[in-house]
Simulated assay, not measured.
Amino acid sequence: MIIKRFTKEWPLHMLLLPGIVIALIFSYVPMAGIAIAFEKFIPTKGIFKSQWVGWDNFKYMMEYPGMGRIMFNTLYIAIMKIIGGLMVPITVAILLNEIRKEVFKRTVQTLVYLPHFLSWVLLGGILIDILSPTSGIINQLLGWFGFKPIFFLGSNAWFPYTLVISDIWKEFGFSTIVYLAALTSINPSLYEAAEMDGAGRWKQTWHVTLPGMLPIIVLMATLSVGNILNAGFEQIFNLYGPAVYESGDIIDTFVYRMGFVQVHYGLATSVGLLKSVVSFVLLSMSYSMAYRFAGYRIF
């Protein structure tokens, strides 16, 4: 039966083959490097000849000064990004759905979608310029209203919120397109029935639009939970400095410094491994909760 089915569908399997090979080479073969988390790794000796130290790297990680602060920064920034990354695009999608002039609607969609395609290397330079406390346009505008300049990228009080706002601005356009697509699947007769029952635009939104969007909202929220320990390495790496380590240093930037700057490969790998395990557990729990409380299955 299996052979007969494979013979019939072999062109489809061949189409999958390049993707499978790439996944094996770049996602599964490198997993052998997990052994470094349990070794005092020396590059010249390699993985198989480096000294095995067991759980010592994990013990050192738990006792490392500032690890609690790094974990807090990661969770704090990531949770704010997840909440904002859900609320803002949902709101914008609902507002855009109310626009009847298609030209204006498409123009706004395109404008909010464009930042998604820009890398943080480019956006980092732009943000550094416009947020500069001396020559940045934002602080110049604040100066016109009598406010003192704010060092957005050099103040521990402002840096986390600058990260969150700039990340939401960059990515909400992509998520908005997803939610707009979900809105097209809602049966228009539901709005007509609600209007005949005396429901205004707000009640139609609350009782028809949001329930119709619920499956995709659950999907996006579920996928976001798996990234709760990913606060955005590329963004933070291009924007932060020693002055804001206290509020901006996250797990990924810590791993980068330990591994590539201080060449403590064992510690860096152990932190990365712990992060991956926790993310896997959280993602599995979120899938289970999505099915239990919303009746929605991703797979």
Rank of each mutant, 00 (worst) to 15 (best):
L273V: 13
F293L: 01
A221R: 05
F38E: 03
S276E: 01
S247Q: 03
V225L: 09
P242W: 13
I130Y: 09
M61Y: 01
P18M: 00
K40Y: 03
G125V: 05
W52A: 08
F41K: 01
V271P: 11
S286C: 04
W202L: 13
S270A: 15
V53F: 10
L118E: 08
A290S: 15
G259W: 04
P160W: 03
S50F: 04
Y256D: 00
F299W: 11
G84C: 09
W158G: 05
W158D: 02
T110Q: 08
S119Q: 07
G272A: 01
G295A: 00
L183E: 09
P188M: 02
G84H: 02
G46D: 10
G46T: 12
S189Y: 14
S189C: 06
V29K: 11
I137N: 07
V88A: 09
L95K: 03
D197R: 02
T74V: 09
E98Q: 15
Y28G: 00
Y60F: 04
A193G: 06
I137Q: 10
F299I: 13
H207S: 12
V108Q: 00
E234T: 13
M31R: 13
K203P: 03
L153C: 03
G84E: 01
F237M: 09
V281E: 06
A199T: 10
R257P: 06
L267E: 05
V103N: 13
W158V: 04
I70S: 02
L239V: 12
F280W: 14
T184H: 09
R297W: 04
Y265L: 02
F41D: 02
G241K: 06
V121Y: 11
S155P: 05
G295K: 02
Y179M: 11
G146N: 12
G146S: 12
L95D: 07
L229M: 01
I298P: 05
V92L: 07
L183R: 03
V261D: 14
E63Y: 07
P65Y: 00
N230F: 03
K275N: 03
E171D: 15
S270L: 08
M220G: 04
L86T: 01
G173K: 01
W206C: 10
E9I: 00
I42N: 13
Q235G: 07
E63H: 12
L127E: 00
T91W: 08
Y113C: 03
I79H: 06
P133H: 10
Q109S: 09
T110N: 14
K4D: 15
I2P: 05
I70L: 00
L153K: 10
L141P: 08
V277N: 06
V53A: 08
W10A: 07
